[in-house]
Design a protein around this nucleic acid. Structure first.
Lengths: 243, 243
DNA sequence: AGGGATATTGTTTTTGCAACAATAACACAT
DNA sequence: ATGTGTTATTGTTGCAAAAACAATATCCCT
């Protein structure tokens, strides 16, 4: 915002990309969209994060919500902006250039993208949406393959952010779990995020200290072993403890 | 990045703004630039963060470095991108609109800005730069007055980020202190950042554990009380401990 | 020599974290 | 009915880090 006459001021495109993370009880997964690249009559397939250029007069947060709704059937999800990516060569790959020209129908130099993070229950509406036209997949977040643009880097940064966020405010974790969950599920989730095994007994002790995780009088059924107890997350109680 | 025909795709301006934080031994300060607004023959004064629109083919990080150099005389500073601000109405204030039209000489709808954080020694080259044309001031970060655009909000977010960053990686703190500093200065700095008083004896114990803070054989002079010892930060030793 | 001011130092208690194994409960096969 | 396989649940101890708490040392100045 300073007066400079010589170099040309940039007038770039801005997009949002959403890293939607889920947990299947075993692994962390990320929601990706299939991309089709046509080249010399051949068709390639490819994966990318849900994302979109923003519209005129559309707030960044609103654009991210729209993307989630349009491309993944998820509405009014808690989204956290976590980083902007604006390297010149993030749109330099030939495949990406071709795809952009077809998709946006204009020549694009650079797109600065604002990345958002959302944690969702994998079993939610996304599943049904997958069945419909949009080819959505839950892919293991640790090994998503080679993605479009710099989306591998964006996912790496998202993982870092999740680790940070959990240590200061574990509330987000419970968005990843079903309403009723077992201690094993919660523990496995922590293990995947911290990237290391946790002692079973110490974890149970910590669980008892979390007054906002309340034990239900329900147990697993039809399992070939002692049935595990179900727990639920109590948001009201949680908010009490945060003062 | 999806195909959408109806709403107009945005083609906005992108800027970077730098929150440069210093510490005077007592308070945290932020480096602000004086802005002049001409209206009906009158002149107002105002403060803003150092910032600039980015150029074509200029990386975000490079733009932030350029801003710091051009507007504050600081070169090759460690900068961390911490958040993007893209609300529609961040450039809606009349004062800001008028200033933009004069400064950039074009009509501007919206500017998405990427905010950067830098921690610097207050006594460094910035002081001399202040004397030259650019009117730079160190303002208390807790109460900077009413700033241009949404710069008050940006500073709030910067403070949050500093708190987070320090707990995981205290290295940044020492960028705020002079090469030689007393235990009191370091302790006061921690207190300002955590926002609470620290026990003197416990702090000294922690100091001894920080092997990268080495005691010098120098003491304060001409003080009307027992002279405090000076310490310095040892970066090499610090990097050893981070493994 | 004494007073005013700030610097420096150690002990105890409490709390949180890490390591470690035996028993309980369920389905199923015999 | 009994046994087997499989997973769930529970307690104790030792160690390390954090919190609470006050007396003495050193410098300048009068």
């Amino acid at each position: 915002m300073m007066i400079e006459q010589n170099p040309p001021l940039a007038h770039h495109h801005i997009s949002v990309d959403c890293v939607v993370v889920g947990f299947d009880g075993e692994q962390l997964k990320v929601l990706l969209l299939k991309r089709t690249i046509k080249e010399d009559g051949n068709e390639y397939h490819d994966m990318k994060l849900p994302g979109s250029l923003i519209y005129e007069d559309e707030d960044l947060d609103a654009a991210a919500q729209r993307v989630l709704h349009e491309q993944a059937g998820i509405k009014r999800m808690t989204l956290e902006q976590f980083k902007a990516f604006g390297s010149r060569d993030r749109t330099k790959n030939i495949k990406d250039v071709k795809w952009l020209e077809r998709a946006i129908q204009m020549k694009v130099d650079r797109i600065v993208t604002i990345a958002y993070l959302a944690l969702v229950k994998i079993s939610s509406s996304t599943a049904s949406f997958t069945a419909a036209g949009n080819e959505l997949c839950w892919i293991p977040i640790d090994n998503p393959g080679e993605l479009a643009f710099d989306h591998n880097i964006i996912i790496q940064e998202a993982i870092k952010r999740i680790r940070q966020a959990v240590s200061t405010d574990p509330i987000n974790l419970f968005q990843l779990l079903p309403h009723k969950f077992t201690a094993l599920q919660l523990r496995t989730l922590f293990e995947r995020i911290y990237g290391k095994a946790l002692d079973v007994r110490n974890f149970q002790k910590k669980l008892k200290q979390m007054t906002y995780v309340v034990a239900l009088d329900e147990y697993e059924k039809n399992v070939a072993h002692r049935a595990a107890r179900y727990y639920r997350f109590d948001k009201v109680e949680y908010n009490k403890t945060r003062r």
